[in-house]
Simulated scan of single mutants.
Amino acid sequence: MTSNEKRYWFPAKRFGWGWGVPITWQGWAVLLVYLGLIWGGAAALLASHGVFVFMVYTSILTAVFLAICQRKGEPLHRGGK
C-alpha cells in the first residue's frame, strides 16, 4: 500500500446500505469499545436512571459510531448495482 492509498476500517456492504464487518484492527477496536460502552451503560444507567436516559445515551453513542464509520469507512455505493 502506498502512502497515497486510503485504508478503510469498514467496507461498504455489497447489498443494502451501510458498512460491513471491520477489516482493520482499528475498526474492531472502535466496534468493541462501542459495544462495551452500550453494555456498561445498560448496567449503570438502566437501574439508576431508567430507560429514557439509557436510550438517549445509546442514541448519542450510536451517532458517534456512525460518524466514525462515515469518516473511516469505504464510501457508500449509490444506485442499483
Rank of each mutant, 00 (worst) to 15 (best):
V21C: 11
W28T: 03
G27Y: 00
G50D: 08
A43P: 00
R71P: 00
S3E: 12
A42I: 08
F52W: 15
Y8R: 04
S59E: 08
A63D: 08
G36K: 03
L31V: 10
Y34F: 15
F10G: 00
I68W: 08
T58I: 07
V30K: 03
F52C: 05
Y8M: 06
L45H: 05
L37C: 12
P22E: 04
A43Y: 14
W28G: 09
I38V: 14
G36P: 04
I38F: 06
V30D: 04
S48Y: 10
A63I: 13
T62H: 12
R78H: 15
A63V: 14
W28Q: 09
F52E: 05
G40F: 12
L31P: 00
M1T: 12
V64R: 03
K6D: 00
Q70W: 11
G18L: 05
S59D: 05
K6L: 08
I68T: 05
I68E: 01
P75R: 01
P75F: 00
F52D: 11
V64D: 09
K72P: 00
S59Y: 07
I38A: 06
P22I: 01
C69G: 05
I68N: 02
K6P: 01
V64I: 15
V51W: 15
M55E: 09
H77R: 10
C69A: 10
W28F: 15
Y34A: 09
A43M: 13
G16S: 07
T2M: 07
L61K: 02
I38M: 12
L37M: 14
M1G: 14
A42Q: 14
V56R: 09
P11E: 03
L37Q: 03
L45Q: 04
H49P: 02
K81P: 02
G73P: 00
K81W: 06
S3W: 11
K72A: 04
L76R: 08
G16E: 05
G16V: 03
W39Q: 08
